[in-house]
Every structure is written in C-alpha cells, then in structure tokens.
C-alpha cells in the first residue's frame, strides 16, 4: 500500500512573526523555517502505518521553492521513502492550486491513501485536503484523531464539535490529521544522514499541467490590533449591564 504525504514549509512555530513594513506580507528574511506541525503528524502516521506493515511506501511531496527540499529531507529522515518537490518561486500558493498539483500527483502515483495536516500554521486555511478530495472524488476523513486501516477500508475517528465521529472510507481516501492523532518522533542523527541518499525528484508545476496562478489577491497584511487595557467593575450587576448595553454580547 502506497501513501502520499503532502507537507508544507512554514515559519517555525517558535518564531514571533513580523509583518513587512509595506504591509505586503509576513517578513521571512532570516526567519527559521520548519515543517508545519500538522504535517509532522501526517508523516508520523504514515511511518507508523509502515511500521505496522500496512504501508509499503511513503512519498512525501511539497509545493514550494528549492529551500523546501529541507523539509522533504526531514520527512525522509523521519521515515518517508522518497519525495517530490513541485518547484516554484511563487510565494503564497493558494490551497486550490496546491490541491490541483496533488490531484495530478495522485493520478501519477496512484496512492491508496493521502495523509495531510488539517491546516498549515501560516495560512490557517484548512482547505487543501478537502479540495483534493473533491477534485479527485476520493472520500475524506478530516481532523483525524485515530486512523485504522483494515479490510480495504480506512476507519477515521474525527474530532468534531460534539465529540468524536468515526467514518469508514473506501480506499483510496484522503485523511487530514488533528493534533491528538499522534506524537511525532524526532529525526535521529543516523537517519538524517540516510535521508540524504533517498531519492528527491523535482518537477515543475507545468510538467503536471497545473497553473499555480491565484484567483485571490492579498490586499494588505497587518498585525492584530494591540489589546486595550481592561477596567474593573464594582459589581456583577454592572458587569451584566456592560455586557448587555456596551459590548452587546448578551
């Protein structure tokens, strides 16, 4: 069984991001980059399935600049067998364009399972997995907290507002990972070196017949407004009054 794991290079979660002076986006100069934490969970799940003998091959894939090779190497150090970089210098590729690239790769590689992070911590869109499922017609199990493959199906336990929901999907299927699915491992030092010898293929979006052009335009990026100081109220009555008449939330 073959698994495709799309991953994304994002600003490291420890970094306090700064908005560029011209408000055109987030300043990425000299900022530490890393694999999106939800993508780490996706890689980990694929590796665990391989360790259980369910999966035979794991292919990591990303859409991004040459620098994104670093995250593919990390995925391979964690256990992916090979990887594909769909190389572009275009910044901020939108989820729909990524989903189209992935659709082309799904057609080329015919994976039985695509496991991705439920969202990336930069755009916070939470769209790519769902769009990929729609484009390919594959069933989807999003926000997974448990994944069990058995008898040609995958049972995905989803974290939904009301609790947990388990869905049984025919393969091939798309699964997106939530935070509690697993605790990702770290890349051991020998595996970091071994990953250098694993195959990393680079293709252009055009080779896959995909145009990355975006249909949305970023007008302005601004840091969130600084939080204003609060006030002390004298009584519960005053609080209720303010919530009702000033904040108008009750």
């Amino acid at each position: 069984m073959k698994v495709l794991v799309p991953i994304k290079r994002v600003v490291d979660y420890n970094v306090k991001v700064r908005v560029k002076a011209d408000n055109s986006g987030v300043d990425l100069a000299n900022v530490k980059m890393a694999m999106n934490p939800f993508c780490e969970i996706a890689v980990e799940e694929a590796v665990r399935l391989k360790e259980k003998g369910v999966v035979t091959e794991i292919i990591a894939v990303t859409v991004g600049s040459k620098a994104a090779q670093e995250q593919l190497r990390t995925a391979m150090a964690l256990g992916a067998d090979r990887s594909i970089l769909v190389e572009t210098d275009q910044e901020d590729v939108q989820p729909l364009a990524v989903a189209k690239v992935l659709k082309a790769l799904v057609e080329k590689e015919s994976p039985d399972l695509v496991i991705l992070g439920k969202q990336a911590i930069d755009g916070d869109n939470s769209q790519t997995g769902q769009m990929l499922a729609a484009l390919t017609g594959m069933p989807q199990g999003t926000f997974a907290s448990e994944v069990v493959v058995a008898d040609g199906k995958v049972n995905v336990t989803r974290e939904v507002d009301g609790g947990l929901q388990t869905v049984a999907l025919d393969l091939p299927a798309v699964v997106t990972t939530d935070l509690r699915l697993n605790e990702p491992r770290y890349a051991s030092l020998p595996n970091i070196m071994k990953a250098k010898k694993k195959p990393l293929e680079t293709v252009a979006p055009g080779d896959l017949g995909v145009d990355l052009a975006s249909s949305t335009k970023t007008l302005k990026v601004e840091p969130p407004a600084e939080r204003q100081a609060g006030i002390k109220v004298a009584s519960v009555e005053e609080l209720v009054d303010k919530l009702k008449n000033e904040a108008k939330v009750i």
């Binding site: 890393a34 090779q69 670093e70 190497r73 990390t74 150090a77 770290y186 890349a187 051991s188 030092l189 970091i192 070196m193 250098k196």
Partner: peptide
C-alpha cells in the same frame, strides 16, 4: 563532505 547547512540544521532541530 557529506554534510551541508541542511544536515547541520536538522541535527540542531533534533
């Protein structure tokens, strides 16, 4: 010879 900034960075990450 087999090293690069990438392997250094991954090692430091781990």
């Amino acid at each position: 010879h087999d090293h690069s900034r990438e392997t250094f960075s991954q090692t430091l990450d781990t």
